[in-house]
Every structure is written in C-alpha cells, then in structure tokens.
Nucleic acid binder design. Structure first.
Lengths: 180, 180
DNA sequence: CCTTGTTGTTATCGACTGATAACTAGCGTC
DNA sequence: GACGCTAGTTATCAGTCGATAACAACAAGG
C-alpha cells in the first residue's frame, strides 16, 4: 500500500502513464476518467483536477506518446541514420502496444477540433523528423510511414504485441514485411 | 417531406447509410444512436428496434463498408487485374471519406470482442482478396495494404477528401505517393 | 504547535444516452 | 369496413460519466 504523497507533477506523471494504457485500450470516447483514476490509484475527481478536462488529458497523453516515438527515432538515428534503423526502433516500441495505438485513437478522434489539430501537427512532425534524420527520399519516407500505419492498425486489432490473437493473415503479412 | 412508409428492410438500408456517415465522423463510442436516427429521419428507439443494439448496428455498418470496398476492388480487377487498378478504385472511394474511416474506427474499437473479431475477419478477407485478384506477390500486397492504411488514416485526419484541411506535410506526402 | 499551502478524498450534481414499453397509424385483405 | 400486421412514435427509465464543491489529511516553516 503505497500511501505515499507525491507532488502534483509526480502524480500527473503516473496518471499520464495510466492514461496511455487506458486510452490505448479503449480510445478517447470509450475511456472513462474513472478507469484512468483507478489505474493510477487515485480518485476520479483528482484526475480531472490535475488535467482540467478529459480532453486536455487526452491531448497530454497524445503529446507524450509522440514525444516517446520521436525520441526513440532520434536515438536510433544516433546509432545509424537509416530507415531500417528507425524501423527497428518502431518495432522495439511495439511491446508497449498501447503506446502506438494511442496515436491511432488520436487520428480516430480527429473530429474533435482540438484533437484533430494536435494530431495533424504531431503526425506531420514525425513525418518531417523521419525525413531529416535519415535523409531518405520523400517516396521512401512515405513508404516508411505507410508501413508504420499498417503495423499500428494491426496492433490495434491485437494481432501483434505480447500475446497476440493468432490470425492466419497476420502472420503471413508480418512475414512479408521483413522482406519489404 | 417524405412521410412515406417504407418496409423495415428499406428503412434499415437508410439507417445504415446514415450510420456510415455518423460512425465515420465520430467512431463507435463517440456516436449516439440519436444522431444516426436524426440523419436517417426516424426516431432513436426505432433505430434500436431495427438493429437490436448499437453494437449490432455498428457491426452491420462495418460489414456494409467492407462489402463496398471489396466489390469496388472486384470491379476494378474485372477491368484490369493489377494493384494499380485497385489503387485507383480505392482512390475513387475516397470522396466518401466516411466509408473508409468507418473501417479505421472499427480497428480502433477492437477492444470490444465482437467488433475485434469482425474487423479482423474482414481485414484478412480484403487482404486475401487483393492477393487473389491481382496475383501480386505477398510483399506487393502488403505494401498495397500499408499504403491503404496511410490513406485511411489521413482521411480520418481530414487532410484528404472533398474540402480537406490544408496541411503542408499532407500535400507533400500525397505527391510522393503517386510516384511510389 | 499552529498556520498555511498543497495533496487528496467523499459526496453529489446534472446532463446524457441506450434501451424498453406502451401506444398510434397506415395499408392490405377478406 | 373491420381486422390484423407491420411501421413508427412518444414517454420514460436506469445507468453512466465528467465535472464541481466542500472537506480532510499531511508536510513544512516560523
């Protein structure tokens, strides 16, 4: 029983991590703030007070996820600035299925103006970053992003990750990916 | 004022079309049955009676969308059985932004077991169909699907379609797609 | 030790939303 | 032209969920 008292910043961090899991599992509209609160081990009203609004919490979560993706790419490019290297980094992010899927849920929730704007901005930033880090041609970068979206969608469908739902087409598809 | 009385089948069809629009805009959890009802010009309880449940309506909507996509692919392959031909067909589907985005919302709602199962089944079927219709290699088919997912995600972000939100990276990305 | 600021909770509201029940009305048919 | 079937409605419930308000507990400083 960690009844420890944390600073608001520390607690926000924990809530944010819980939010990644919860939003990753059920999306923006499908997730209740109470669920996040229980995951974080605090009360639901406190979650609201820390972030003001469910929407703002989702935005913070999205930004957090994108930061993680970008920094993973940067680290990878630091070792070897190729698309293959960044691809490996993305795959290594996969075990945390939720992380990537949160982004997908952001895309899906784009009808909310604030979310749409944020998500467009961050996606564009990732796209640009990949190009700058690797020096690949626009066509190569686009293909990289396309593959990433396919993988993300598959993660959402739970056919990749730690204990995936076995699926004939999924294994076949993943096999043909290494070669592409 | 079309106060015409329709058969349950005909009315269901209208509701289904409304559901494509509504679910396409706001996703599964984010769409209220009342919204669909208003779009279809009937009362909310009647929508429920026609489909039993919001979930079942969403499943019907998803299946409808997938049917449309598959038949578009079949027609395209009928003219010319190449990936490029199917790609054109997909692009021609784009104006109905909702159509493709519904599928994305299905992926996003995969945490609901029934939706997940349906969506996996239909995605696998599309994947298989594309391969059979074109005779392309697994790698080529996978790349085709990846591109499709990228386009779908962009449609969700509203940077493609009839009056897209202008976006630097989006135009750049779309330009590099024709060449890929 | 008492005051003050910050962390956190409980209680509760108010709006929403999917679903049910009960009723109404059009249309064919015998 | 009453009967019966199907299309469709209004009224309403029961549960949910985000948000607010008021209070409680803990820590630090003077």
């Amino acid at each position: 029983m960690t009844k420890t008292r944390l600073t608001a910043a520390e607690r926000s961090e924990e809530v944010l991590q819980a939010a990644v899991v919860a939003f990753g599992a059920n999306g923006y509209a499908g997730t209740k703030t109470d669920e996040i609160a229980r995951l974080a081990g605090v009360s639901q009203p406190y979650v609201i007070r820390l972030f003001g609004t469910k929407q703002q919490l989702f935005l913070a979560t999205t930004n957090r996820v994108c930061d993680k993706i970008e920094s993973a790419f940067r680290r990878a490019a630091d070792r070897e600035p190729t698309l293959a290297s960044l691809g490996d980094a993305y795959n290594e992010l996969m075990p945390e299925r939720e992380l990537l899927v949160v982004l997908l849920h952001g895309f899906a929730a784009s009808s909310d103006p604030a979310i749409g704007e944020t998500v467009r901005e961050r996606f564009g930033r990732i796209h640009k970053t990949v190009g700058e880090l690797t020096g690949a041609t626009p066509e190569e970068v686009t293909r990289f992003m396309a593959t990433g979206m396919l993988l993300t969608v598959m993660a959402a469908m739970q056919v990749t990750g730690e204990n995936p739902i076995s699926c004939e087409w999924a294994t076949e598809l993943l096999g043909s990916l290494s070669g592409g």
